[in-house]
Every structure is written in structure tokens, then in C-alpha cells.
Amino acid sequence: MAGRMKVDTAAIRSRHPHYFGPPARDRQVLMLAGAAAVILLVAAMAELGFFGAKLIGGIDKLGDIAVLMMPPSPGDWAHVRLYLLSLMETIAISFLGTLLAAVIALPIALLAARNVTVQRVLRFFTRRSLDIIRSVDILIWALIWINVVGLGPFAGVLAIMTSDIGNFGKLFSEAIEAVDRKPREGIVASGGGAVLGIRFGILPEVFPVLASQVLYFFESNTRSATIIGIVGAGGIGLHLAEAIRTLELQQVSFIILLILVAVAAIDVVSNQLRFALIGRRARLA
């Protein structure tokens, strides 16, 4: 009874030619694309200098650097104070930049939302401007603002603000487009104007979503704020870049550790606030 079943291969083959024939066209295209991707990868790696003595020598040096970074140490107490102060500066930059961006982006988002702005041309230009703002990196904004207000953390605040106006403008307008239109219609029907319709018909509904997005960006901006110091826009990045350039490697690892701890702390705090605002279940959405 437990004997092996005789398999009639020919019959199966004739019943399911699909599984035995040559690979389908989809599959062939995919395989060709995969092969092209691999060839491009190898060619690009050759072009960028992967297959040379530079890579081997570099990895060797990287090992030395990693050894020299241990253990993390700030040097002396004066440095600890300096680093903690500039870490606070970093968090301040991120907080102010995010808040300003949120305040400025809200009216812009209303202009970009389909259900608020009926004027198609206006909406189009608002959206394209937001796209352009978003495709310029935060470091470039930092460099531009340094030209306006000089070196220092204020330029960093403005850089984070500018680049987040682009992000918030898009996210906020999507949130506004997703609202239920009935409350607003009710307000307009009972004699409220457009402004009242937005204030009482849209804002109460989107506020928790917007606030949670702002908190989320506060955390990611703290990461960005650590690097804008590299181009001179304040915060701990200045000290980090300086320590790397002068090869104070133990201080480098100390600062990196400090940043990791700060980002983790802000992550926890902003998550708590977000849950308080929108409830734990909304996290899944």
C-alpha cells in the first residue's frame, strides 16, 4: 500500500504544458533585466574604483580607525560640557525648525489640497513648488541660509524649516484631502463661510494626524540636525566633523554614542506623545 505511486509524466506534461514549456515572456524579460542590472553593477563598481588597491588599503586603514575609536572618551570634562551644550543646541534647532515648518506649511497645504482649493492653476503651482523644495537637500538649504543669516544654529533652523515645508506641505495636503466632507458641508449649509468651514469642518478632523506627523518629523529632524553642523549650520555636527578631521577618534565615537542616545530618547518621547494624541491602534494605519 505504501508502495511508490507510478507517475505518468507524459500525461501530466500534456495536461499542464504551462509548467513544462519554455519560461513565459514575463519571466524572460525579468531575467534579462536582472542580467543587465548585474552587468551595470559590475561596470559601475569598476568605474567607481572598487577593483583596485584603494579598496584593500582602505579596509586595512578602516580597521585601524575602528581600533583607535575604542573606547569612547570625551577627553576631559570641558569637552563633555561643550558636547552636551551643542547637543541641546541640536535638539533646539530640530524643535524650532519642525514647529516653524508646520505652522507655515498648513496654509500652503490648504492651497495644495484638491477639496479646498478649486483653482486648478493655483493648486498646480503650489504642488510643483513643494516638489522643488523637497528635491533640494537639507544641506543645500543650510548653505543658502548661511549666506543670509551667517554661520550658526539659526541657519540650521531655517534650513530644517525650508526643507520640511516641502515635506509637510505634501503630507498635510494628503491628510486634508482624505477628510470626510460632510462636517464642512454642514457648516457651509448653516451659513458659515469658507474660513469657518476650514476651521470647524476640516481642522478638528486632521489635527491629530498632522500633530503625529510633526512629532515623527521632529525625531527624524534631530538626525538631520546632527549633520547640518558639518557645513557650519550649528549643532553637534560641527564638533563631530572637527573631531573626525583632526583624527580625535575616541571623541568621535563618544559624540556618535551621544547622538544615538539622544535620538533614541527623542524617539521614545515622541512615540509616547503620538500614542497619547492618536491612540495606540492608529499606529497600524
Binding site: L55, G58, K61, L62
Partner: peptide, 9 residues
């Protein structure tokens, strides 16, 4: 990137 520039040039 800053650290790799030191190691790899």
C-alpha cells in the same frame, strides 16, 4: 562618509 574619506581617500 567623513570617516571613509579618511580611510579610502
Amino acid at each position: 562618509a567623513l570617516m571613509f574619506v579618511i580611510a579610502f581617500g
